[in-house]
Design a protein around this nucleic acid. Structure first.
Lengths: 234, 234
DNA sequence: CTTGACAGGTGTACACCGTACACCCTACGG
DNA sequence: CCGTAGGGTGTACGGTGTACACCTGTCAAG
């Protein structure tokens, strides 16, 4: 008994939840590429194959990690109108994905939605429907928001893109770049001039996200108010 | 001499272009996960390490493949107004990515844009600018179109998602799903009812793509006409 | 004509990955 | 007391990208 208690104290007996949570922590800390079954096992003080008693394979592990992220998205506010409710929800999703930057890539790598993801989508559809949007419009709206629903805009070359660019480039070659890509240079110059406060990528990602989100939401609202239908487009 | 000619005839002497093109063909045929350095070498009738004489590493190989795809995007039509020119260009990009389905994932996995990609972006900015859009608006527009500029909407769970769903599910369990996700079921039912012609995923992807693209373009145009500026938002 | 450099293909080897399979130990219900 | 089963272990296999040393054929300069 005493020995048993000691063993337990030395290492908690490992369950699915702990495996998934540790995987999330590991990915948060070192990026998704640092997460391997071997590395995760090591972190849990266990041999790699032990994980397979709690998770079928790595795919299922990743599914479980996605579930954790999606569960962090706030529930919708029932008192708001559909537009602000959807807006707040998506911004909450964005916050969740900012906490877990690997989430975007992992979620996109899944090829079938998990129940939690389906539930989230269902709830999102429900918000639009109870806002009065037709089934038809709701359908196309869901396509249009697309992955924005999960809080990610594109941000194609964020991590090492423009961020690393203006760090590594000694501003001499920046003139060369301007010669080759004059239009990009023009926009970059203006952006960094306007928003001197922003240091990172030179762009206020939050602003950009809300800009295009609101553009879409306004578009949805306009279509809704004019009783748009896909069968007789404007 | 004769021996030399024979050797050449037996196997063309392998250059960067041939390596990249074969990689593209391989990915087109079997998906990106079938593309390994070893597999590619085998396809070229050569030992794996031979590839490294033409390509620094796999990352650079993937960069080169992206270049090929991006180069397939049509040049803009100088006679159209900015909106239809941008529209046509993006639809051309979409066609290119439909030809190379792996392109989306690979492009997203890059962490720095290649010169060809930069040139494409520069050209896109140029189209907006010569359409009269302000630098400010152009900047935010570029963020808003985001990855749609490269022809991909989200399509999160395309391949095995809804497509596999309505194939594998024997319509008995579909009722169960409806019980759990009533809103999804409602939309799916309506969509498959309306567009019975579409067999694949149950959704007309091309329509959805153009729907949200036009929603954005219309939004851009509206902001442009009302001389929108980020410093004094509406 | 010889020689030496160099571009390009080869072979071996390493470290890592996911995971199949057989094993073993410990706790617990009959 | 014993059988069973759940959970941790060890070994092994086939795959990956790629570092490094090697060889070989071609061509320019001496």
């Amino acid at each position: 008994m005493a020995l048993h208690a000691e063993t337990v104290a030395r290492r908690a007996p490992l369950n699915r939840e702990r495996v998934l949570q540790t995987a999330v922590d590991l990915a948060d800390a070192g990026g998704i590429e640092d997460l391997s079954m071997r590395r995760l096992a090591q972190e849990l003080g266990v041999v790699p194959m032990a994980l397979y008693k709690h998770v079928a394979n790595k795919e299922e592990l990743l599914d479980g990690m996605v579930e954790i992220v999606v569960r962090e998205i706030d529930a919708p506010d029932p008192d708001s109108d559909w537009k602000t409710a959807v807006r707040q929800r998506i911004l909450s999703a964005r916050r969740a994905l900012l906490r877990h930057p690997w989430g975007r890539r992992v979620l996109e790598s899944r090829n079938a939605p998990t129940p939690t993801v389906l539930a989230y989508m269902d709830s999102m559809i429900g918000m639009l429907r109870s806002g009065g949007l037709s089934i038809d419009l709701t359908h196309h709206v869901m396509h249009a928001i697309g992955s924005r629903m999960f809080g990610f805009s594109q941000e194609l070359f964020t991590e090492n893109g423009s961020a690393a660019a203006d760090v590594t480039l000694p501003a001499a070659t920046l003139a060369q770049i301007a010669a080759i890509y004059p239009n990009i240079a023009e926009v970059v110059a203006r952006a960094s001039h306007d928003e001197a406060s922003v240091v990172g990528s030179g762009c206020d990602d939050q602003f950009e996200f809300e800009f295009s989100l609101d553009l879409l939401l306004d578009g949805f609202e306009r279509l809704h108010l004019q009783r748009w239908s896909s069968t007789q487009p404007s």
